[in-house]
Design a protein around this nucleic acid. Structure first.
Length: 598
RNA sequence: GGCCCGUUGGUCAAGAGGUCAAGACACCGCCCUUUCACGGCGGAAUCGCGAGUUCGAUUCUCGCACGGGUCACCA
C-alpha cells in the first residue's frame, strides 16, 4: 500500500548537545533524522544540535492536525519522569512540565499543554446563559481551589456551542463574576494560553478528525439512520417497555456499504461503539467506585449530521487537549462518566481525576435554579451580601473544613480545601446562615471602611446632614448582618415615626405609661440644661435624674429611647440616640412624648 | 420503567465497628447591657425503616422506603 507509506508518521524526541530535548513529528522520519543528526536542521543553533534520538514511535494513523497528540504521545508522563530523573535539564520544558513545540501554522514555537509531572490543571466550563447560579459558582470555586492548592492552573473555557441558549453579554457576566470573586483564571479566552482557543465555538474544526480516528481504530462508526427511523425505533422500544436506545442498525455495516453510502452523499453521524458486554468502572474522588454494565450504555453520537460535535464528545476532546487533570462538575454527569472514560481509553489518553459534586438545593426536592426564580450570585450582591461572605458560604455548602473554624477568606480556603471534605449528599441553600456569615464579615470590616460602605444605605432613609456618621456607624456595625438592613434601622432619625404608647410599657424595665411620663418630665429640664451635647454630659444629666427619682436606670432610659426613636429596636441605647439626634431634635421629641402620654 | 447516586438534629455537617455522636447557623435559657445586637455560658439529636454479620453497628452486607440524577443529532 503505497498510500500508507505517505501517511505513516512518527513522533520523536531528540536530546540536544546542551541537554535540552526537542520533540517533533514527521512523516519523513529518515530524512528528518538525517538532518538532525548532521546538525543541519535549520531550526537548530549549534549548541542545540541533536546528539541522541531518545524516543521515537510510529503512529498508525495520519496525524494531520494532530501534532499535539503525537507529541503528547512522545512526551508521556513516564517518559518525561524518566528523563528528568536522569537529570537531563530540559530547556524546552518548563518547571511545570509544559514543553515548547513548533506550530506549523503560525510558524513559531508554542507552549504545549503536555501532561505535566504533577501540575494540576482544572477548568471551569460554563455555558453563557446570562445567569451565574450559586451551584455553578461553587463548581468554579472548587475547581479553582483544587488547582491553586496544588499550585496548578485554573482554566476558563466558554462552552457556547448552543446557539439557542446564547444570551448577549452573558460571557461578561461570567468574566465579571469570576473576577469579582477572585477566581482568576490562568488561561482563558481573553488571556489566551497554550491550549487556545478557549471558546468552544472557535474549536469546531478539530473534533471531526478525532472522531474519524476513532472510526479507524474501531471505537466508532458511521451511522446513516435518519431521524424518522430513530423515532420509530424509540416508539417501539418505549411501547414495549424497553429503555430507548440506538438499536445498532449501522454498527456492523461493511466497509463497502459504508463507502457506497458515503459516495452517495448520504448524511451521517458518527457514533461511539460501546462494548456490548462487561462493565466499566471508575473511581470518583467523591463517590468512590462507580460501576455500570456496558450493555446499558447507548452508542452515543459523537459527531452530528452537520459535522459538529456533541457536547459529550467536545468535552472529552477539550479536556484532554487542554491537559485537564482534574474534572470538577455536577453529579448529573456521574452516570455519563463511564462513556467519557471509554473515549479516553479508545484514544489511549490518560484519564482525569473526577470530582463529582452533589447539587445545591432550594429545598429537599428542588435544585436551586433560575427557573425557580432563585437568587443568582448577582442577586445576592444586590441584596447586600458581601462577595467574600458569599464565597465563604458556598464553599461550606457541601464541603466541610477539617478544623472548627468556618470563616475563611479565599486564600485561606486555598490552604484549607481538601477533596476529602466534599460531601456526597445534596446541600440545601440556607439564607439564614449566609446572613450570619455576612454579619461576621461585616463585624470584621475596619470602622472607616464600614462607614464608607454603609453611607449609601444610611442615606436612603436618613438625609439629615448634621448627623455624626462615624458615631452612627459605630452603633450600626455590630447590628448589621446585611447592608440592606440599614435603611430601616436609621429611618427614625429624619422623622419620628408614629408610635403607640404600648412601646413605653416594658416588663423587664418595669416601665408603664404613668412612670414613663414622670421620667420624661423630669428628664426634659435636665437635658435642656446640658451645655455640651455629648455622650458624657448627657449620661451625667440623666443619671442625676435617675438618682433624684430614686428609680432603676431603665425606668428613665427606656422611655427616652421610645420618645426619641418611636421604635422598639434601635441601633443603640437612649443616651446614644440622644447624642446622634442632637439637642434640639431630642428635646422636641421628648416634649412630643410627654404630650402623647398626657 | 432501566441504570447510577444519596439518606446523621430545623439547616450545613464531623464521625470510617466500641465516642458522653464534634463544630457552625437557627432555636430556647442564663450572664453582660438602658432595648436590640455583639460577647460569654448552658440546653435539646440513638444517626430513614427492616433484616443480617459481630461480643458490639450510625459506621460493614442485603432488602425496603424516600429523595435526586440519567436515559436527545441539548449543553
Amino acid at each position: 500500500m503505497p498510500k500508507e507509506k505517505e501517511t505513516a508518521s512518527f513522533v520523536y524526541m531528540l536530546k540536544c548537545r546542551d541537554g535540552t530535548l526537542y520533540t517533533g513529528w514527521t512523516n519523513h522520519l529518515a530524512r528528518r533524522i538525517a538532518a538532525h543528526q548532521s546538525g543541519k536542521g535549520a531550526k537548530y543553533t549549534r549548541s542545540r544540535r541533536p546528539v541522541e534520538l531518545v524516543y521515537f514511535e510510529r503512529l498508525p494513523d495520519k496525524p494531520s492536525g494532530l501534532r499535539r497528540e503525537a507529541a503528547l504521545k512522545a512526551l508521556n508522563r513516564t517518559q518525561k519522569l524518566r528523563l528528568i530523573a536522569a537529570g537531563i535539564p530540559c530547556k524546552n520544558i518548563d518547571k511545570s512540565g509544559k514543553s515548547l513545540y513548533y506550530d506549523k501554522e503560525s510558524k513559531e514555537m508554542k507552549w504545549s499543554v503536555f501532561m505535566t509531572f504533577n501540575e494540576v490543571r482544572t477548568r471551569f466550563a460554563p455555558s453563557p446563559t446570562g445567569y451565574m447560579h450559586v451551584g455553578n459558582l461553587r463548581t468554579a470555586l472548587y475547581a479553582y481551589l483544587l488547582a491553586k492548592k496544588e499550585n496548578g492552573t485554573f482554566i476558563l473555557r466558554i462552552e457556547d456551542t448552543d446557539q439557542e441558549r446564547y444570551v448577549d453579554g452573558a460571557v461578561d457576566i461570567i468574566y465579571n463574576t469570576l473576577r469579582q470573586t477572585g477566581l482568576l483564571w490562568d488561561e482563558g479566552p481573553d488571556v489566551g494560553g497554550p491550549a487556545a482557543p478557549y471558546i468552544q465555538s472557535e474549536r469546531m474544526g478539530m473534533y471531526k478528525e478525532y472522531a474519524e480516528q476513532l472510526v479507524r481504530s474501531g471505537h466508532a462508526y458511521y451511522c446513516f439512520c435518519d431521524k424518522e427511523r430513530l423515532e420509530e425505533v424509540r416508539i417501539i422500544q418505549q411501547a414495549s417497555g424497553i429503555t430507548p436506545r440506538y438499536d445498532g442498525h449501522c454498527r456492523n455495516l461493511t466497509p463497502e456499504e459504508i463507502q457506497k453510502k458515503l459516495d452517495a452523499g448520504l448524511p451521517y453521524v458518527i457514533r461511539q461503539k460501546m462494548p456490548s458486554s462487561g462493565t466499566t468502572s471508575f473511581d470518583d474522588e467523591v463517590y468512590g467506585r462507580v460501576t455500570v454494565e456496558n450493555e446499558t450504555l447507548d452508542d452515543q453520537i459523537l459527531i452530528k449530521t452537520d459535522g459538529m460535535p456533541t457536547y459529550n464528545f467536545a468535552n472529552v476532546i477539550d479536556d484532554h487537549t487542554m491537559g485537564i487533570t482534574h474534572v470538577v462538575r455536577g453529579n448529573e454527569y456521574l452516570s455519563s462518566a463511564p462513556k467519557y472514560n471509554l473515549l479516553y481509553d479508545a484514544f489511549g489518553w490518560e484519564k482525569p481525576v473526577y470530582i463529582h459534586c452533589a447539587p445545591v438545593m432550594k429545598d429537599h426536592t428542588q435544585k436551586l435554579s433560575k427557573r425557580n426564580g432563585d437568587a443568582s450570585f448577582q442577586d445576592l450582591l444586590e441584596k447586600g451580601y458581601l462577595t467574600e461572605a458569599v464565597i465563604n458560604y458556598i464553599a461550606l455548602l457541601g464541603w466541610s473544613p477539617k478544623g472548627e473554624n468556618e470563616i475563611f477568606t479565599l486564600p485561606e480556603l486555598v490552604q484549607e480545601f481538601d477533596i476529602s471534605g466534599i460531601s456526597k449528599s445534596p446541600a440545601i441553600f440556607d439564607i439564614v446562615k449566609l446572613r450570619a456569615i455576612n454579619g461576621e464579615y461585616i463585624r470584621r470590616i475596619e470602622p472607616e471602611k464600614f462607614s464608607e460602605m454603609a453611607l449609601p444605605y444610611i442615606r436612603q432613609t436618613c438625609k439629615r446632614e448634621d448627623i455624626d456618621i462615624p458615631l452612627l456607624c459605630k452603633m450600626l456595625q455590630p447590628r448589621t448582618e446585611i447592608f440592606t438592613d440599614i435603611p430601616e434601622q436609621v429611618d427614625f432619625i429624619d422623622a419620628l415615626p408614629a408610635y403607640s404608647n404600648e412601646l413605653y410599657c416594658h416588663k423587664k424595665m418595669k416601665t408603664n405609661v404613668e412612670n414613663s411620663l414622670v421620667s420624661l418630665k423630669a428628664a426634659l429640664p435636665a437635658l435642656e440644661a446640658v451645655e455640651t451635647w455629648d455622650l458624657e454630659h448627657i449620661h451625667e444629666a440623666l443619671f442625676q435624674v435617675i438618682e433624684q427619682l430614686g428609680v432603676k436606670n431603665g425606668v428613665v432610659l427606656w422611655p427616652i429611647r421610645v420618645a426619641v426613636s418611636g421604635k422598639q429596636f434601635t441601633p443603640g441605647g437612649g443616651i446614644d440616640l440622644c447624642e446622634i439626634l442632637g439637642k434640639e431634635h431630642t428635646l422636641e421629641r421628648i416634649r412630643k412624648g410627654i404630650e402623647q402620654l398626657s
